[in-house]
Design a protein around this nucleic acid. Structure first.
Lengths: 179, 179
DNA sequence: CAGAATCATTTCGCGTGCAAATTAATTATC
DNA sequence: GATAATTAATTTGCACGCGAAATGATTCTG
């Protein structure tokens, strides 16, 4: 019936919470892979919630803001490049650009040389908005991050990039491997 | 599981990204925070795509499978516990349970003592399905993970959990801090 | 013991993000 | 130079996951 595996699992490393049942998730008895999945799910959810918060406070989602920054950095830039840059599908980016354009933050213009492509540029209002725009990452998270040492931050980023590389099949063959 | 990782091990590790421009995203000129965001976005997307792949091949999404495993592990279990366990909102879990129930993999029953709560159990078919069920993480990712050393895997999981802790405000106050 | 407060779950409305099909423009092939 | 193949962007259809409000059940108060 109920599975109570008497696992001898030593709560390792990050699981140095005392044997008291910490509410929220008894990861200790999960396999490493499952723990990893849970952590990833928590991160995904946190990203989603942060995006909703942005939407509520500023009227744009995190992907929208991310696109805006990318355009600001690369303009004039075709839509496809932005999609690849911020790791969203083409069709998704179209919708995002619609909303950014409707708000008057970006301008769309068909390319001169190639009239299939769309050239994206920030408008003056777009620049203005970005000047006072919120950060992509939640302020609480940023603060906590800032509280770490430089090498810790770099280590975290490196690990995340490594995980992203391992999960993301698309541009893996081009690179020839994770290492 | 018995080995304690060398706690001082981590410093430079994978952080030695050479200035070479890898195609796809010129992260090199981005701030550390932006690089972090991009990595998180890539991970989120990879999770989404993996879930779609599951849906296509097995007819259930990653959250559904995750819920199924959780129920299998904790049954009989009320819905709210499952929601907290797999880090999804209550309302989301309701929909997931609908689909799992419609497929005949779980059974819902109002609690005897408290008729507000719903007791969830796996059906025989559910058990059967789980026996041959796919993993939550993409096979390619799992293989790459398996290719690492144990301490590397643990380091990755620990870092992800740490990031999740830092991003997730909900159960932070209860714990008193990240450390 | 009635009414209020609380709790677990569900319903509803919304925006997201994807794949597949579509449109429009460019390049390749014969 | 016309037809086919490719490319960039968009439209369409679908399921997800959230918050807020609603529902039904239980406990707290006076």
């Amino acid at each position: 019936m109920t599975s109570q595996p008497p696992s001898t699992a030593i709560p390792s490393l990050a699981a140095e919470s005392p044997p008291s049942q910490v509410e929220g998730g008894g990861d200790s008895q999960l396999s490493l892979e499952d723990q990893l999945f849970v952590a990833l799910r928590r991160i995904t959810r946190a990203m989603d919630l942060q995006s909703r918060l942005l939407l509520q406070d500023y009227g744009l989602t995190a992907p929208q803001l991310s696109a805006l920054w990318a355009i600001s950095r690369l303009q004039p830039v075709p839509a496809g490049v932005v999609a690849r840059e911020i790791h969203l599908g083409y069709s998704t980016v179209t919708g995002i650009l619609d909303r950014l354009e409707r708000r008057g933050w970006i301008g769309r213009a068909r390319g001169d040389r190639d009239r299939r492509s769309v050239s994206l540029c920030l408008t003056a209002e777009g620049e203005c908005f970005l000047a006072g725009a919120p950060k992509l990452l939640k302020s609480g998270f940023q603060q906590r991050l800032a509280g770490l040492r430089q090498w810790e931050r770099m280590q975290i980023v490196a690990t995340l990039q490594r995980v992203a590389d391992m999960m993301d099949d698309t541009n893996l063959d081009e690179r020839g491997g994770v290492f």
